[in-house]
Nucleic acid binder design. Structure first.
Length: 859
RNA sequence: GCCGAAGUGGCGGAACGGCAGACGCGGCGGUCUCAAAAACCGCUGGGCUUCACGGCCCGUGUGGGUUCGAAUCCCACCUUCGGCACCA
């Protein structure tokens, strides 16, 4: 087995005979016949050599190097790799390489997110089976990924559709089930009529399906949910994570914590109209609970509103109102989410005929239903306080309901309001709470409710439990069996995986395709051995991607999803990179998964991704999202073929700050290509070299090299790839000029070229390797330690110091970097140009920042 | 409506409160060539001025402010992009 980290001895610089003659480029003073920079041959050669020598195989432990886990989001198997993949992966690879050279045993794995709708949709269009389509795509994408020259450890590749992967996805589901975090529940669910499946809340964007933009409807179905809400508070506490602030804010907004109170409104005993049909009085509710962030307004309640889907609606509806209520409920349920959520239409609702009692005041208020109340938030019921909530105000106006002010606006004269007063004020008409500032009354009333068991202070989240059931074929089957006698039963671990059958009519019909397969459905009960039926829904693919980074640590383990030892040695991920479009989906789900795994004692720490960086989005040359239909897509393969992977990688890094993204200018890459050609020429056609050359010139060259090294190192540390490339370009230009200026000191020149290859290694791994090898150095450049910049050389001895008069630059002086103020001031006053501006004025002040500038203030 | 990020040459962008425009694209002029491409060399924010070297003024979305000094910090506004939104 080859050494995993490419120790210097393992791959010697001598090359096999399959390479073009390196020429005698290194010959003293030799300007030999020019050899072109042949990126195609170079890249192919080194990719083969690295693979053959196992350079990037990462051992689980290395006695010399600490483990470090770098991860880039794995691609979906949608077909060809697009430029966005390159933009996401190339800088990540550069970063991983940098940390590897800095001495870590870096794990940088890759795999495929392979289950999900696109495979089925493509299959429906093209006729190929999703499994075959996916396999073909993986094969093609593997080749494209290899063309990047990234340091992936391919021995750890995972694909989420492989039975030995989804076996463990199913195991995770059962693990969560055992932890009480997975449950089946019948409720109205988001339904995409085009994809023919339910969707998680996170997958509904502006009332439309995240994938196909079809307006989402509600359907009442029994579905599997994961209790992500159990972790709402912990997921909210993300301040300490080293993540982009905007992503943390998005997650916090998504979780949406609201502090307030729950209040129970009393129902009359036997008041429920539908009660007799449902049977015993024991389960007859005696109250309606509401959630409010404004307990201070409780005495201003003049009506109660339930969501049309509220479970009590039917029983609260009186005979006289039944027709109207049923018509309203029907309309509300058949409306799309977009229609339901439109805020600009007038409020509507229907009276149920029943009433309830506000226990705080003893007042009786009518119970209405209205579609502005959401069944899925809070308790699905709200107290109507028209004086202090604009929605309730509009509703009260619409239906002539009373408006009672209980929080008096400052200077209020008792006149009726023309809009809700939602700000703070002084309590009125609220009995014992009168006179209190409303902010204080909030807590006082909430506590009052708690003391009497009428509710009390509480916290509500916008976050809903994660709906993971999908009525589609191409996913991991949910490992549950239903038995008439024993009910819902988990499939025993030993029977996993529950295999997804190949031979199934997978066209989506709204019914789960697996339900059509007798062979799949019919099974025996794990508890009693009797006949039973399998769950036929599959899991949301976000389940598969919530733990893939764990599997990379232990990809072949047949006994565990991952072993505790390997979890301990690799997790959590040190550096994660990927797009922030996953802020409230994958990144939130993965955090939830990790916390559940932690509670099960499987993984260390509390968070899966210690540090996360989100790159921006790469756009088409026209500044719009790239897409084939727009005709503005740039194919990476063509760029690689024409310019080489190294040039393409470097150009993607050079475009701008990585977190920003931006348009891809197809013409701009020539600048990078020119740069690499120059680097090639500088390295392969050196100037005349002499031992003991001009000392001053040699020092200047070494200074250039070490100053660049300091910049490049700093830029890599802060993920500023664009300025790293710019620094390398400047350095190459400096070497170019040095080469033109005549003979160079041999030692200085060799060091300068060696540093060039080392500094190129993260961004342009193939060219760096080629130059390293041509310089006759041992081992792979990627096995070398990252060089240390010499502080003495980085420091500048003299600086060009601007001299300002009243803040305007009038002169530039070449002075020693550590010159004292008196010396600089004297030099400044000796300057003709400075004198011209201070003549006839008095110098009242001077500000000197050593090494930066001198400012003379005159009057 | 609420929250967040960003506005700098023709373009992408650089710039610990201290020389605005690094680096690159494009453009202009030149070398090489029969020619073109490639490559290389020089110039390239605007205005005024000088035979010239040079000098002066303006300039980082707009308007104010803090400071010896502001692209950078503060306030208000405008625009663009992203997120959330009948969430009680």
């Amino acid at each position: 087995m080859s050494p995993a980290t490419g120790s210097p001895a393992s791959g010697s610089g001598t090359t096999a005979g399959d390479e073009p003659a390196a020429g005698d480029a290194g010959a003293p003073g030799g300007r030999t016949r020019a050899e072109r920079y042949d990126h195609t041959a170079i890249e192919r050669r080194w990719q083969q050599r690295w693979a053959a020598e196992g350079l990037y195989r990462t051992p689980d432990h290395d006695p010399q190097r600490p483990n470090r886990y770098h991860l880039t989001m794995f691609p979906y198997t949608s077909g060809d790799l697009h430029i966005g993949h390159w933009f996401a992966i190339a800088p990540s690879d550069a970063l991983a390489r940098f940390h590897r050279m800095r001495g870590s045993n870096v794990l940088f794995p890759i795999g495929f997110d392979a289950f999900g709708l696109p495979a089925e949709n493509a299959a429906i269009k093209g006729g190929a089976h999703p499994a075959d389509w996916t396999r073909a795509n993986i094969e093609r994408m593997r080749g494209q990924l290899r063309s990047m020259g990234a340091m992936f450890d391919w021995s750890r590749e995972v694909a989420t559709n492989a039975p030995d992967y989804y076996r463990w996805t199913q195991w995770w589901f059962l693990q969560l089930y055992k932890q009480g975090l997975a449950y089946r529940h019948e409720a109205p669910a988001n339904w995409c009529p085009s994809c023919n499946t339910t969707l998680a809340n996170e997958q509904v964007v502006d009332g439309r399906c995240e994938r196909c933009e079809t307006p989402v409807e509600q359907r009442r179905l029994a579905q599997w949910f994961l209790r992500i809400t159990n972790y709402a508070e912990e997921l909210l506490a993300n301040e300490q994570l080293d993540w982009p602030e905007h992503v943390k804010v998005m997650q916090r907004n998504w979780i949406g914590r609201s502090e307030g109170a729950e209040a129970a409104f009393a129902l009359d005993a036997g008041a429920l109209a539908g009660g007799e049909a449902e049977g015993d009085a024991a389960d007859e509710p005696s109250e309606i609970r509401v959630f409010t962030t404004r307990p201070d307004t409780l005495c201003g309640v003049t009506f109660m509103v339930l969501a049309p889907e509220h479970p009590l609606v039917e029983r609260l509806t009186t005979e006289e109102q039944r027709a109207a209520v049923e018509a309203y409920v029907y309309d509300a349920e058949s409306a799309t989410e977009i229609e339901r959520q439109a805020t600009d239409r007038p409020k509507s609702g229907v009276f149920t005929g029943s009433s309830c009692v506000n226990r705080l005041t003893g007042e009786r208020v009518p119970i209405w239903i209205a579609d502005y109340v959401l069944a899925s938030y809070g308790t699905g019921a709200v107290m109507g306080v028209p004086a202090h909530d604009q929605r309730d105000f509009e509703f009260a106006q619409q239906y002539g309901l009373p408006i009672t002010v209980v929080v008096a606006p400052p200077e209020w004269d008792g006149e009726p309001l023309d809009a809700a007063h939602v700000e703070a004020g002084t309590m009125v008409c609220s009995g014992q709470f009168d006179g209190l500032p409303s902010e204080e009354a909030k807590g006082a009333i909430a506590r009052h409710l708690g003391e009497r068991d009428w509710g009390g202070p509480t916290v509500t989240y916008r976050l809903r439990d994660w709906l993971i059931s999908r009525q589609r074929y191409w996913g991991a089957p949910i490992p549950i069996v239903y038995c008439d006698d024993c009910g819902e039963q988990p499939v025993p671990d030993a029977e996993l995986p529950v295999k997804l059958p190949y031979d199934v009519e997978f066209l989506p019909t709204g019914q789960s395709p697996l339900a059509l397969s007798e062979e799949f459905v019919n099974t025996t009960c794990p508890a009693c051995g009797g006949a039973a039926r399998r769950e036929t829904d599959t899991m949301d693919t976000f389940m598969c991607s919530s733990w893939y980074f764990m599997r990379y640590c232990d990809p072949q383990d047949a006994e565990h999803a991952l072993s505790p030892q390997l979890a301990e040695s690799w997790l959590p991920v040190d550096q994660y990179t990927g797009g922030s479009e996953h802020a409230t989906m994958h990144l939130l789900y993965a955090r939830f998964f990790y916390k559940a795994a932690r509670d099960a004692g499987i993984v260390p720490g509390d968070e899966p991704f210690t540090r996360y960086f989100s790159q921006g989005q790469i756009l088409g040359p026209d500044g719009r999202r790239m897409s084939k239909s727009r005709g503005n897509a740039v194919a990476p393969d063509a760029q690689v073929e024409r310019w080489g992977a190294d040039a393409f990688r470097a150009y993607l890094m050079f475009l701008g700050p990585w977190e920003q993204g931006g348009p891809y200018d197809v013409d701009g890459i020539v600048g990078v290509a020119r740069w690499l050609n120059r680097a090639w020429t500088v390295a392969t056609e050196p100037p005349a070299l002499v031992d003991g050359g001009d000392a001053e010139q040699a020092r200047a060259l070494r200074q250039q090299a070490h100053q660049t090294l300091a910049r490049v190192t700093h830029d890599l540390e802060r993920l500023r790839f664009n300025t790293m490339v710019a620094a390398l370009m400047e350095y190459t230009n400096a070497l170019w000029r040095a080469r033109e200026s005549g003979a160079q000191d041999r030692a200085a020149w060799d060091e300068a070229l060696s540093l060039l290859a080392l500094m190129l290694a993260p961004a342009c791994p193939h060219l760096a390797e080629e130059l390293w090898q041509r310089a006759g150095r041992a081992g792979f450049v990627h096995g070398q330690p990252w060089p240390e910049a010499d502080a003495d050389l980085v420091r500048r001895d003299t600086v060009e110091l601007p001299v300002q008069v009243n803040g305007r630059v009038r002169e530039r002086l070449e002075v020693p970097a550590d010159a004292d103020e008196a010396a600089v001031r004297a030099a400044a006053l000796a300057s003709e140009r400075v004198r011209a501006h201070i003549e006839g004025h008095e110098i009242v002040r001077a500000i000197y920042v050593p090494g930066r500038m001198l400012n003379l203030v005159v009057k």
